[in-house]
Every structure is written in C-alpha cells, then in structure tokens.
Nucleic acid binder design. Structure first.
Lengths: 222, 222
DNA sequence: CTGCTCATGCTGGTATACAATATGCCAGAT
DNA sequence: ATCTGGCATATTGTATACCAGCATGAGCAG
C-alpha cells in the first residue's frame, strides 16, 4: 500500500475530483455528449490548467474521457459491446482471484465474505436490489481484494468504476436478483470448501451470465 | 476518404519514444536506479518539458516509471512478487481469451496460430529459445488478440510489455523449453477441437507454470 | 579529524503566455 | 435565397517562466 502522501499534488486532487464528478454524472441517462471545459474546471478547482490537463490525460488512458484535439474533452459513453467486453474481462480476473483465495486466504477472510453476504441478504436493501448495486459491486470487489494480487486488484478497480457508472440504468427483474443471490452463496461455499476449480467456475459463470443478460436486454445502451 | 490523423501530437510521440527507450534499457541487468531527466529528454527530443511530462504521467500510471517529487523520475524495476502477480493476471486474461476463441474464432484464425507455432518450431530460433522470447510472447499475444475482446487485448498489452523488459534475464533450461513447446501444441489442438474448458485449463496452467517457475528460480529479481 | 549548519543548486510542480486549428458567423457574389 | 470565402472566436497543444522543497557539500566549530 502506498504510504499516505501528506501532500497530494494538485494533479492528484484534480484527478480524484474529476473522476468522482464523472462517475456521479449519470452519463447514461441522456444521450447528448457531455463536454468538459479545461479552463472552467481549473477555475472551479482554483488551480491552473496544467494539473487539470495531466489528470485528464490519465482519465483518458483509463477510458473515462476522450480528448479531441482543438475540439474539446468528452465524457466517454461505453457501447453495449464495450460493456460486455468489460464484464468478460472482469469474469477473467475475478475467477482467477477465486482460485487464489481457495489456496491462500484465511478462514477468517472468507468468513468476512459470508458475513457481508448474509447482512446484505437479511437487510431491507432488497427493495432496490439490482445487479449493479453498490453492495453487490462491493462484494465482488472484496473477492478480488482477497486474492492479494495487486495487479488483479488494480485492473479490476477500473472495470468496477465503469460498472458504477451504468448501474443506475440497470433494473433487474426479481428472478434474476434471486438467482444472483444464490450464485453468491454457492461461491462462498466453494471458497470455504477450498474447491479451486469449482470456485473459479462459479465465479466465471456468474459474471458471464451477467454479460449474457446485458447482451440480451440492455438495449438502452448504444 | 481516409480520416487518418497525420499529425500525432508531440505528447504521443514522446510517449512512444520514451516507452521504447525504457523497454530497450535492459533495466534488470544492473541494480542501480536509473533516473530520467525531464529537461534533458525534452532537449534531446527537441520539444518542451510539457509533452514530456504528460507522457511521463501516462507511463507512471502504466507502471513503467515512478515520479518522486523533488527527487526525480525513476524507471521501475518490478520485484519478483510483482512479476509473479503479472503473470498470474496474464493467465487470467489469456485463459478467458482461449474460451472465447473456441466459441467465436474462425478455423482460419486458429490455423494461423498453428502456422505460427510450426514455423517457430522448425526454425533455427531454437538456439536462443527462452520463455520470454519475442516469438513466444507474440504467440501468446496472438491468442489474446483472437479473442476479439478489446478490453482483454489492451489490459494484456501492458503486461506483455513488462514481460519484454525482463525476458533478457530469463534463460530457461532446455527441458522447460520443450515442455513449453508441447504445451503450445496442446493448446492449439484444444482450440481446434473447440474444447472450451480444456483450452482454458491448458492456457491457464501453462502460464501459472511459468509463474511457479519464476517463483522458484528467478532469484535474480529483487 | 569529526560533526553540524546552512547556502546553493537541482528537481519536479505549477502557472501563464503563446501558437495552432476547428468552428460559426457574416458579408458579398451569384 | 443560397452559396462561398474569410475573419473572429473558442479551445486545446506547446513553450516558458516561476516556485517550493530536498540533497549536497563547503565551511566552521569542537
């Protein structure tokens, strides 16, 4: 872990501020392109254009904005195909994480996952239960983190952030939510049983199932 | 009409130039930290510091350099643990790619893989055959590309670039090279047979085998 | 000879000025 | 009325000037 930098550079502060702003934008609600103004943002943040530009460059390489020369900076709206590709990549990363967990995680760590899940299940959060809900994403993110593999964690982080951006538009019927819940429980049990191959398979199929669902029903994308 | 952008920005040109320079540096040969001087590089390229800095920022987010405030810019040398983590992540991505290939690739595409492999096998390149050789990396990169999944391709690209940086230090005994060759052939056959699970397993175990090999014998890292 | 202090210089971080280019408006010709 | 050409403007790309902090080492005190 990075030792806390007591003096976050303006660039880094601009980066997090912009990322939060973009994620909170609910970009998939309306279809008009959203353009960001370097100079206005710099003024709002009370800094110069330079750190804003450097933050933008990073956000571009992470797929959040697109810098069009002499035209402007536009927030990226992922196509349906791209969303499916991201979920597929996520399936690859998380299923590998599941393998690693069966081999290296402590019982307490896996118990933490179960606790998170039961708390979720019992709660009234069932109301706005959708597949991209914050709790749901946190559960999957926890699996990745338990792998202890920094590369997996970092790669998945960006994918999850993109997921957060489209979760609002994804309302899932109750049948699918219940199945998702059962999948999660099965995953936990496979992890507890240290069944490497089975855990991998369950995690992978769970994610790929979502990809397939998006492919069939997420016509609001594009 | 070709909408070709004939004017790559200085920033982009500096980025590729720097990346090539860093990859060609053979950073793992000696143990001294290698520092890069913004101002000198800008002069060498005949441009100002700004595009160099923006390129550096991107290279930092990709894990190639580390920007230390008021100290300098240092080329990153991956630790043994980090290399293993990268190979593990690569295993996750490529095994998923193998799954996708069995489902969507054309016979011609898979035939291309086999051709690449036999050409390699028959050639005299066997001399300096090592697990990180350019041809070897290209083979695995081709598998990822055949998946047709842009996200997988992009994520793996960075990992492969890092692999290229350490390939020179990795001399592998002949036994392992032969086994690697057999693995490759088995992978091709599984892909041709459209055996989804088997192809995934073979690709994954091949990569994880390399990770294990590095864990046991790559003491020159660290 | 040894240890400490402080001035100086080098470094990346930031701000700002300048250059290049895409776009839209408007005048004038057809 | 419509089209065309150019100019004004807006916006990013690039260069440069300035700032702040740390490392270094010279020089002095002991």
């Amino acid at each position: 872990m990075a030792p806390i930098d007591a003096t976050p550079s303006f660039k880094h502060k601009a980066y997090t501020a912009l990322k939060n702003a973009i994620v909170a934008m609910d970009i998939y609600r309306n279809r008009e392109d959203i353009r960001l103004d370097e100079r206005k943002l710099a003024q709002d943040f009370g800094i110069s254009r330079t750190p804003v530009r450097e933050a933008m460059a990073q956000l571009e390489s992470e797929g959040f904005v697109r810098l069009v020369p002499r035209r402007g900076i536009y927030v990226v709206r992922k196509t349906k195909r791209e969303v499916i590709e991201m979920i597929t990549a996520w399936a690859a990363l998380e299923s590998m994480a599941a393998r690693l967990i069966t081999q290296t995680a402590t019982v307490d760590q896996i118990a933490g996952l179960r606790k998170m899940l039961t708390t979720f299940e019992g709660g009234k959060v069932r109301a706005h239960l959708d597949e991209y809900s914050e709790v749901n994403i946190e559960f999957h993110q926890s699996i990745i983190k338990l792998s202890g593999n920094r590369v997996l964690i970092d790669l998945a982080e960006n994918l999850f952030t993109h997921m957060r951006m489209i979760r609002r538009k994804t309302i899932v019927e109750k049948d699918r939510a219940d199945r998702s819940m059962r999948d999660h429980m099965n995953i936990i049990e496979a992890l507890e049983a240290r069944s490497t191959d089975r855990a991998e398979e369950l995690v992978r199929d769970h994610a790929l199932g979502l990809a397939d669902h998006v492919a069939r029903f997420a016509d609001y994308l594009d």
